[in-house]
Structures are given as C-alpha cells and as structure tokens.
Design a protein around this nucleic acid. Structure first.
Lengths: 167, 167
DNA sequence: CATATAAATTTTATGCTTGAAATATCTTCT
DNA sequence: AGAAGATATTTCAAGCATAAAATTTATATG
C-alpha cells in the first residue's frame, strides 16, 4: 500500500527505544522515503500501462533476463529479483504466452528450466528501457547528482540492516 | 516486485534525455532507493506477520483511523492512503470481520459510510505502533539524524514530480 | 415533478505477492 | 539398487492492488 503512517504522539508507549526523539525523526524520514518511492512507482506503473500495456513486474523480469543472454533458471530469476518462486512462475507464464520469453529445458536436469528472452522480447525491452530511463530522469530531476553518492551509501547501508542481527 | 533494474549499457537507445551520464546516475540512485525501501518493507511485513499476525495494509488503515477518532468515510480513507476505493473496501471488510473496525452510517447521506476503530482496535494499534516505531529505528539506524532534514527535502520534492507536467 | 448528472461505494476481472504444500527429479549413502 | 535427503519448480489459498463497470442515493435543472 502506501502509508504505514504510525506517527503517534509519544505517550507512555515506548518500546525500548534508545532515544524517543530520534526515533520519531527516523520514523518521519521513513514515511517520506516510502511516500517518494511509492509516488515514483505509481508514475512508472501508469506510464508502462498506457505506453506499453505492460507492468513493472514484467519489466523487472525482462530486465533481469536482458543482462544474461542465455537466460536464467527460474530459481535464479526468483533470487535475483528477490521474489518468491511461485510469483516468478506466474509472471513468466504470461510472458511466455505473449511470446516475450521462452522456456528452455536444462541438460542433465529435468527439474530445471531456463527462461530466455525471445528476439521480440529483446527488442521490446530495449524500447521500454530507454523510456524507463527517461522517466526516472524526469522524476528524480530535483536531486543533485553530486550528492547522489552520499545518499547512495546511506541507502546501501539501510538495505542490509535487519531487526534481528546487526551485520 | 523489487527491481525495475534496467541498467542497460548506453548504446544507441537514447530517448531524448538531457545528459546521458547523469541520467544513468539517477537511474542507479533510483534502483538503490527502491532496494532500500523494499528491504525495509519486507522486514516490517515479516515482523507484523510473526508478531501480530497482521499485514502492512491493515496497519496503514488502522493508523489513518487512529488519528481521527470519529473515523473517516471510505472515500476519505482511500484518498488519505492513496489507494483505490475497491482496495479499501476489501481491507475494511476483513478488519470489520475481526472486530477491529466498525462501519457507521452517515446522517443525511445513505450512500456513505464512516469507518471507525473499535476499542479493541485502538488498543491493538497502540501496541503495534510502538513496535513499528522501534523496528524503523533499528532499520534506519545508520542514517545520521542531522542529515535527515536535507534528505527529507529532496524526497519531498521527488514525491511531487510528474512525468507529465512540472509543478 | 421528472430526468439527468454527480457522488459514494461495491463489484468484477485481472494480475501481483506471499508462504506453505505438493511434485518431480537428482544426489548421496549404505 | 533402494531409501533418504536435497533441489527445482509448480500449485494452492489468501490477501493486496488496480481500473473499469455497476449500483445506490443525492442533487440540480428544466
């Protein structure tokens, strides 16, 4: 969804946080991060729908396969995209129906299948990728490129934090 | 999904971008932003599931209603959360079944319904909100609070950009 | 008043997503 | 070889999300 907005006035309900104030600040930051991301995603989704009659998940699958010409096994795809196996199955099914992807049996292992872009799929992706890049460029226009590296590092760190164990 | 990863080597497929290099940089930033956000969301989802047997969308609805004691109309809820009407209908249905929410008819307008948290709902939300804040605090630990304001401003700006018209 | 237009909500069809169970195949170990 | 375990994938049930159509009630206009 889009909010997760639990910005509750700090009453007696602390949950062992180190510092109530900074925790509120971080929460607010998270809500903004989320809002910005969802906004961009919504724009992209809409653009993909109206311009190419496709979806972000389909684009993601195609992007992953575009980079690896000979294709990927279903399990690799699911791990690269960080989504469940069953999820990939469904999206790939539909892309195969549409002639964008082919399933190729793997030698010496009849359990596995390789998925690969067709010629049509590659061509379509190239067109979509160019537009995608342009859309992002517009949407992130306000952000100073010089500061991007710094911001990136912070996000990189966030992307590896866990609520269980510190890495 | 999680990637939208169309980081394609800049060949002949430019789409009218101002500067090919900075556009690539922005794209890379977007992918990191997305990755970080998805990661945090995944952690939260898992925590909500195992700790409270609930979901982020349900939490979002409860959060919106917690702030407005007398409740909100379905349309207001859908507009606050920025999700479709039909979507809200489904989530509210289930929360009502679980005794978290009540639907209250609106005087002088039999089309509309107000949705409000029950006592049980309010109590449950308070507990969840405290944990939620603590989880965020852990997950965003690496980010320097002093820089948060700056980052926030950039994101604020992003959240209002459109691919159609500059605002 | 009657009808048209607008507004609030639900319903429908389709697709994405997960976690868990089921299937099928491969590998290992005795 | 045969059983046990691991790996690859699909299937299933439930929920989330959208856009578009349908339904119901309200309001405005002739």
């Amino acid at each position: 969804m889009s909010e997760h907005a639990a910005l509750v006035p700090s009453g007696t309900l602390e949950a062992g946080a180190k510092d109530a104030a900074s925790s509120k600040v971080r929460l607010r930051l998270w809500l903004k991060l989320l809002k910005a991301t969802k906004h961009v995603e919504a724009e992209l989704r809409e653009n993909f729908r109206t311009n190419f009659d496709t979806t972000l998940p389909r684009f993601d699958v195609m992007a992953a396969l575009y980079r690896v010409e000979p294709g990927l096994k279903m399990s690799q795809l699911s791990s690269v995209l960080r989504v469940s196996n069953g999820n990939v199955t469904g999206i790939v099914d539909r892309l195969v129906d549409d002639g964008i992807l082919v399933r190729v049996p793997v030698d010496n292992d009849r359990r596995a299948t390789t998925v690969r872009l067709t010629k049509v799929g590659r061509e379509q992706f190239a067109r979509m990728a160019a537009m995608h890049e342009a859309w992002i460029d517009t949407l992130l226009d306000g952000i100073d490129v010089a500061e991007v590296q710094h911001l990136s590092d912070q996000l990189e760190h966030v992307a590896h934090k866990t609520t269980k164990n510190e890495d």
